[in-house]
Amino acid sequence: MNYGKKGSRRRRSSSLLYQEPPESMEHMSDQSALPNLNANWVNAKGAWAIHVVCIIGLKILFDIIPGVSQETSWTLVNITYMFASYLMFHWVRGVPFEFNAGAYDNLNMWEQIDNGDQYTPAKKFLLSVPIVLFLLSTHYTHYDLTYFTINFLAVLAVVIPKLPFVSWHAQNASKEI
């Protein structure tokens, strides 16, 4: 219960750039009650290598499908990776475990990583991967304009939400009296 902070949590629902008001004491203590298992694994051993492994795996998968050209295969790898990482880091909110009374319900995984700190090594790595993958895939699609456009839009979709000043908060962020 956050008594008497009338209006402090109001926001324009449509704006993209948005400064989150400070959380209440209860909210912060609930968040720090236990380590956030949902987001902490990005700093674990092998968590970076798995991205490379997944990308190589995807490439092999699309290559063995008959009738898929190299260009299509690279584009498919690119958009599959971008889609999956968007789903994982920016679309799904909250944590799948019940350990802090839903204190993370309004935060997606990107916002949970490293407790919301910006420019941490994990975040730098996670931003570099899609950019490198994009450059690779445009190179191997031989700079065909259609493939380029598709790949570029896909990379934008995962790079923009990673920018420090963008916060896609839930519209139903709990409003209190």
């Binding site: 730098k124 570099s128 950019i131 450059l135 990379v155």
Partner: peptide
Amino acid sequence: AVELFLVLFAIRYLLSPKYSTQK
């Protein structure tokens, strides 16, 4: 130019210092 911009942006992002959003 688009590709160059992306690369420059990535380099800038990689070089930015870490900061905390917590009070």
